[in-house]
Nucleic acid binder design. Structure first.
Lengths: 102, 102
DNA sequence: CATACATATGAACATATGCTCATATATAAT
DNA sequence: ATTATATATGAGCATATGTTCATATGTATG
């Protein structure tokens, strides 16, 4: 068993980094995270704004929740989601800025 | 036809950002880019260090070349690859630093 | 408690992705 | 020219991923 696949990076680090970027690699999640970085939203609102099914949004939020990238609060029947990871939002915004200015 | 799927981000921006992060989402490419960020390498050297087949490395380099993330120079039969996109390396290193210090 | 509304979840399916295997191309040396 | 070395590339395959569809769960209200 090798604990490292690379002389300089721990395999654990590589897996973590890969996971962060996998989240950010999907257009749907980019839109969701960018939206949530601007305002707290409930699930249906996200679905409407992004023109996606409630189910698809909910599945993605489930993933983002498990990775602790978003959090939520309940208000009656409604769940309000917001971002919970400044670092990931920072990476996203840098990539957006770079893309927009090139 | 909608030119934007999101009120704030152009669909072109979303695609570009997604593509950047897709590149960085794969463990193999993380290792290759990190290695190349430290030293110029030929293909066989990358394959040896990362314990991968020459073909697998070459396929990945092909992709990185097409996206202009790496460049190469020839010396006889050997091709020496190096990084050609500071911004992408910057994103990668930030994610690595963050992962290592948490 | 029955119904409606908001959200979550499991299964199935289609597409994307990364590898291997075989083979092609390019350069150098004999 | 033939052979060896370094790298590239196409096809095929197995796995991962994101969506849809159907259904479940949770909460408020009559």
């Amino acid at each position: 068993m090798k604990t490292e696949d690379h002389s300089f990076l721990k395999s654990e680090t590589i897996e973590n980094v890969s996971q962060i970027f996998k989240v950010l690699a999907d257009p749907t999640r980019i839109k969701i995270l960018y939206l949530l970085s601007q305002e707290e939203c409930n699930v249906n609102h996200i679905a409407e704004v992004l023109e996606m099914s409630q189910s698809a949004v909910s599945h993605q939020l489930s993933m983002l929740r498990n990775l602790r990238l978003v959090k939520y609060r309940r208000e009656g029947k409604t769940l309000f989601y917001s971002c919970d990871d400044e670092h990931v939002i920072s990476l996203l915004k840098q990539a957006i800025d770079h893309s927009e200015h090139h």
